[in-house]
């Protein structure tokens, strides 16, 4: 498997076949076949964009919800995780070590909407013992991308 290809795509999913082919030193057809393989086998799940929503007057909000749950015997956390995943509002679900069990990132149009979703949906699931909601106030860095501060090349021209 071509880890270098994955690393490049992870950096910029929009590199063209021709760019990838020169950077990896393999033919465009090989790149294409490799990508098709990675997609087909589910190594590559999706290509998405990192958007700075703050640039728009977008008022939508995200929150990180800590869920404490009682694991089901034989199923562990699978069942409740599967259930939580199904909601469209839920963007991310992680099983965590430490003080709580599931980390759920929820998005919504308003604080109110997210809060109500947690109250009405997540906290009413049988095995959920407690929830704790933390709203995201600003995104500084997401998926390796800095969303805050410039990314200007500040090198001078002083080298010899």
């Amino acid at each position: 498997m071509n880890m270098k290809l994955l690393k490049l795509l992870n950096k910029n999913a929009r590199y063209t076949l021709s760019e990838l082919s020169s950077m990896l030193g393999i033919t465009e057809n090989e790149v294409k076949a490799e990508i098709e393989f990675l997609e087909k086998e589910g190594y590559i799940r999706a290509y998405k964009t990192v958007i700075d929503w703050e640039k728009f007057d977008d008022t939508s909000v995200s929150a990180l919800i800590e869920l404490k749950v009682t694991p089901k015997s034989g199923l562990g956390f699978e069942e409740v995780a599967q259930r939580v995943m199904r909601y469209n509002e839920v963007e991310t679900v992680y099983l965590m070590s430490g003080g709580y069990d599931l980390c759920v990132i929820v998005k919504g149009k308003t604080f109110q909407q997210v809060a109500m979703f947690v109250a009405k949906e997540l906290s009413t699931i049988d095995s959920v013992i407690s929830t704790s909601t933390h709203f995201v106030l600003r995104r500084y860095k997401e998926l390796d991308v800095c969303l805050y501060g410039g990314k200007n090349d500040d090198r001078g021209i002083y080298s010899l």
């Binding site: 270098k4 690393k7 490049l8 760019e19 020169s22 950077m23 990896l24 030193g25």
Partner: peptide, 14 residues
């Protein structure tokens, strides 16, 4: 080093 390597191939081919 890996990053330079990709760019190196790109610019040489270019």
């Amino acid at each position: 080093l890996e990053e330079y390597d990709s760019r190196r191939r790109l610019i040489v081919k270019g």
